[in-house]
Simulated assay, not measured.
Amino acid sequence: MIFGIPWWVFMVVLLIFLSGYMAFRAMRAEKELEKQYIEREGKVYMERIEEERHKRLQQDEEQTQQVSH
């Protein structure tokens, strides 16, 4: 007994704090993974937009050349 409290009570409190810390770390890691996933998907989306813009510009140039002839 420590300060009139059984030792296992201190262990339970310690494990509760340890569990909270581990949950906090897991939450932070999950948030970071989600951020990376969002950034990667955003990059893919922006590349698709750029490809579509490039295709449209080529089509416009071809139409302009056909009209001018």
Rank of each mutant, 00 (worst) to 15 (best):
G42N: 05
K31V: 00
I49C: 12
Q63N: 08
Q58Y: 02
R53E: 05
E41D: 10
E61G: 00
H69Y: 11
A29D: 07
Y45P: 01
I2E: 09
R56P: 00
M1F: 10
Q58R: 02
F3H: 07
I38F: 04
A29W: 11
F3K: 08
I49P: 10
E47R: 11
D60A: 15
Y45V: 03
R56E: 13
K35Q: 03
I5S: 06
D60K: 15
M27N: 09
R28Y: 08
M22Y: 14
Q63D: 05
M46T: 09
G20F: 07
A26I: 09
I2A: 04
A23W: 08
E30A: 10
Y37D: 11
Q65N: 04
K31P: 00
K43Y: 11
V9K: 15
I49Y: 14
E32G: 05
Q66L: 15
F17P: 04
A26K: 14
M1S: 10
E41G: 02
R53F: 02
E34M: 14
A29H: 11
R48K: 15
F10W: 12
K31F: 05
S68Q: 07
L33N: 12
E61C: 02
K35W: 02
E32H: 06
V9M: 15
G4C: 03
P6F: 05
F10C: 00
R28V: 06
W7I: 12
W7L: 14
V13P: 03
A29F: 06
